[in-house]
């Protein structure tokens, strides 16, 4: 698995609201998305992409990953979004409504052109958003389209519309799709992030949906309001018991390696390599959030 940074929460910020963006890093999200797509009306796309470029260049986001959600490349705005934002060096680009590897490769080609024109050597990652039946079906192909794809994201609103289902609070209609997005991402060795919870006032719904996302194998979840970030982060943080168990597993693994044993055991229980890998990941996460002194 590639080196992966902590991506428990990604917070959407409308790109046309400079006040929200200038304080965005205070909200504790691992990733801030300056949105050029759905939250920006067509009449403001032009002004907003200039503003977003200036935000990227001038706002200190601290350790938060700073990203941009562009418009679809098939729209009249996608290419201009890249032309304006890539020279301002975002960490990653969210690619909406991705349905195939080609959707990623088109972005990759244009980003490469812009980077070459501006002499940029910084790596810019891609985070395709899967929000259609076709996209879900092609999740693995999308996830492995380019080495710069680091995370797949699921978008439930457009997905449910696409399959002709009603979006429900329980989310049964999204269950298979979410699992396929997780599987596609994990098969390609990258992360997966769940859809947003759209009802800001429904804290219990957000909590349940985030717990389910963690159980399904997602690494994080989207937030549409700063108040959602803390709950999402907390749920994706490893628990005290998980950390303690992971420490025992890793220490048993290191002990076995020292002794040259091929088999790792904890007490009378044999530990398979995936269990060790998961324990190492939990410790890495715990270190990142300061829970492993």
């Amino acid at each position: 698995m590639k080196f992966q940074r902590l991506r428990r929460s990604r917070l959407y910020m409308p790109g046309n609201n400079p006040y929200l963006s200038q304080n965005a890093f205070l909200f504790g999200a691992d990733c801030i998305i300056l949105d050029l797509e759905d939250s920006v009306p067509p009449s403001e796309k032009f002004d907003t992409r200039i503003l977003v470029r200036e935000i990227l260049k001038n706002v200190d986001f601290g350790g938060t990953e700073k990203t941009v959600r562009i418009n679809q490349m098939s729209s009249p705005f996608g290419r201009d979004d890249l032309e304006e934002s890539v020279p301002a060096l975002p960490d990653a680009i969210f690619i909406p409504k991705t349905e195939s590897a080609d959707d990623v490769l088109i972005v990759d080609e244009i980003v490469a052109e812009i980077k070459s024109k501006h002499d940029i050597d910084k790596e810019i990652f891609y985070m395709p958003i899967i929000e259609s039946a076709k996209g879900v079906w092609n999740a693995y192909e999308i996830a492995s389209a380019s080495p710069n794809v680091v995370m797949l994201t699921f978008g439930a609103e457009d997905f449910t519309r696409d399959i002709g289902a009603q979006r429900t609070r329980e989310g049964k209609e999204q269950f298979v799709a979410k699992s396929m997005v997780v599987l596609g991402a994990k098969a390609a060795g990258i992360q997966a992030s769940d859809t947003v919870w759209s009802d800001i006032d429904d804290i219990e719904g957000l909590r349940n949906s985030t717990l389910e996302a963690k159980e399904l194998g997602f690494d994080g979840k989207g937030a549409i309001h700063p108040s959602q970030v803390e709950i999402i982060n907390e749920i994706f943080n490893p628990t005290h018991d998980e950390i303690e168990y992971a420490k025992k597993v890793v220490s048993a693994f290191e002990e076995a390696q020292k002794k040259g044993n091929a088999v790792v055991a904890l007490g009378r229980k044999m530990l398979d390599p995936p269990v060790v890998a998961r324990a190492q990941r939990i410790i890495e996460l715990a270190e990142k959030i300061g829970k492993n002194p």
Partner: peptide, 9 residues
């Protein structure tokens, strides 16, 4: 920087 962006636009 917001001023500059708006004037540029």
């Amino acid at each position: 920087y917001v001023l500059r962006a708006r004037v540029e636009a």
